[in-house]
Design a binder for these strands. Sequence first.
DNA 1: TTGTACGCGTTATCAT
DNA 2: ATGATAACGCGTACAA
Lengths: 342, 342
Amino acid sequence: MQKTGQPTINDVARIAGVSKKTVSRVINHSPLLNEETRKRVEEVIADLGYIPNPQARALALRRNFLIGLVHDNPNAQTVMNVQQGMLEALHGTEFEMVVRPVDRGAATMLDDLRHFLERQRLFGVLLMPPVSENDMVAKLCDDIGCRYVRMGSAQLDDAAHMVASNDREAVRIAVEYLVEQGHERIGLVAGPHGFRSARERRLGFEDALGAAGIALPRSLIADGNYTFESGLIAAERLLDLVPRPTAIFSSNDEMAAGVIHAARQRGLEIPRDLSIIGFDDTPIAAHVWPPLTTVRWPIASMARSAALKLIAGAEEEEVGVEEPSLFLSTLIRRGSVAAPGR
Amino acid sequence: MQKTGQPTINDVARIAGVSKKTVSRVINHSPLLNEETRKRVEEVIADLGYIPNPQARALALRRNFLIGLVHDNPNAQTVMNVQQGMLEALHGTEFEMVVRPVDRGAATMLDDLRHFLERQRLFGVLLMPPVSENDMVAKLCDDIGCRYVRMGSAQLDDAAHMVASNDREAVRIAVEYLVEQGHERIGLVAGPHGFRSARERRLGFEDALGAAGIALPRSLIADGNYTFESGLIAAERLLDLVPRPTAIFSSNDEMAAGVIHAARQRGLEIPRDLSIIGFDDTPIAAHVWPPLTTVRWPIASMARSAALKLIAGAEEEEVGVEEPSLFLSTLIRRGSVAAPGR
DNA sequence: TTGTACGCGTTATCAT
DNA sequence: ATGATAACGCGTACAA
């Protein structure tokens, strides 16, 4: 036992009367080990409360026991949900989570990320959208030999490297719901260019209108960038139209809150004068008035699954079932939708 | 140069024609070094693009270059703001951030934390409220030899280990503002027991009323737990009172959103029938309708300062100025306050 | 099935 | 001011 108080592999080996290597084998669950020896070593380990030193292992294995969360997502709630899901998956394992924001715009982004991954030698990284949609980033991870799993709104990679949601279909169902209520002039607050989710959600929007035989003039589409303010501005433009749309689908909840704001500012009552549907089901959706009908995106579950994919095989107890790579979003009906004029 | 592609200290030493130790001295800015030697070594380092291996350093120094964020805060936005502030401070340094949620309720919390700190050998940790208010945790860090800085609503520790805000005074000023507007029946939605911030804010509330000579019956104080739902329920009770309070101070924004919800449900108009002030200035405050008058808590700045305190002295360029340990919250006046009946 | 000797990349000790 | 050598704690050839 060293002066630091922490027992080392040497202590275990000495007390158990075996070599370091044997202890190492026990730790790493080597199959070729005498059952008796294993038991004896495990007893000593338990006795001493020995825990392998992560720093030493990292040096020897040239690989850290850290899982990185790489993201450039502007939505705080989304990021938190992902972290929560990851931490659930990592809880009780030897892995820790390190958070790494990146600057999508910066020309040096790829180089920065490469330096980070090479230096820290992460066990793996979870890539959040929108940076996860960048194939160069995935390739970079591959090149460096760093495991990765991408989160996204569509299947961008093979099942082992991807956890996706079905944004397009979920939005189609949401907008069909508006159509069923009798809406024909439906506005879209689109997400920012360069976000795959924005594209998928827009496609779902168009799918629904197309299937219903409703024309979609360009004027009914307003661009946003997933922020409250952009939703406000987009809604102002849409609500200026004559005739005014009777419903608006907003590509996320934060912008939907902006739409509600804009509607209220001009004295419109929701849902009587305007129906609204959002996307994400962030807390904001339940907190605005009226409560927002929205698409629930199981982001935390996706993140948990992604993290489990990353550490699959590295843990003692194997995850028997394969982690799914597709997650379904569902429509949450609250108070912001009604038939037009009701 | 190894096959991994990463140059090591040996490569630098060989090419520069010096010993490993000398290179090490250059890296660690040892004062006793020949200026010429240093320059030569630095050139080789730049040439090779050499970067010290963090894993090896961690092993040799028995200390990782990781800063932990230890928290049990239920508010996602608050946690994100803290992370953002920390990451700002850590950006460009050799430090990374690892996030570690703890379970305040669990009896094993201290032991869990001890294991975590002992194993990972963090350089330091930032303690977020409410777990930061637990003196045992601070003592644990001290015992283990892990640097720490606590965040909180009052000065719980010496300046080197504390970054605090002046919640009590900020709330006093906010409530005085209500009094100035002519409010006399003012309700309080208090925060949860065991949160120092809840206590400080309540004290500030009482300070203001006391100074104005306004009595505070127990019935005007409703307990909440910082969640939207608890704010809703607390408000329902307050709004049932006869006579009804004309203003409510909510100990955080999320509960204030619940208060707005409750008010709207019973047809009250804000601010005409009810004035509301929140605390935190989270995005939700600007997103509700009407925009919420609230106390801005400079949480991200506090976190940045806390992180800088943690790594002070470890970085190349010294932080010339001392980081402050007290941050002032300020009242943000928006649309949710008016004179009673207006 | 188990052990020996060495490597991982850095810092620390104690010389010179 | 600089260098040789030994830690740091664990994994891996290779041998036994």
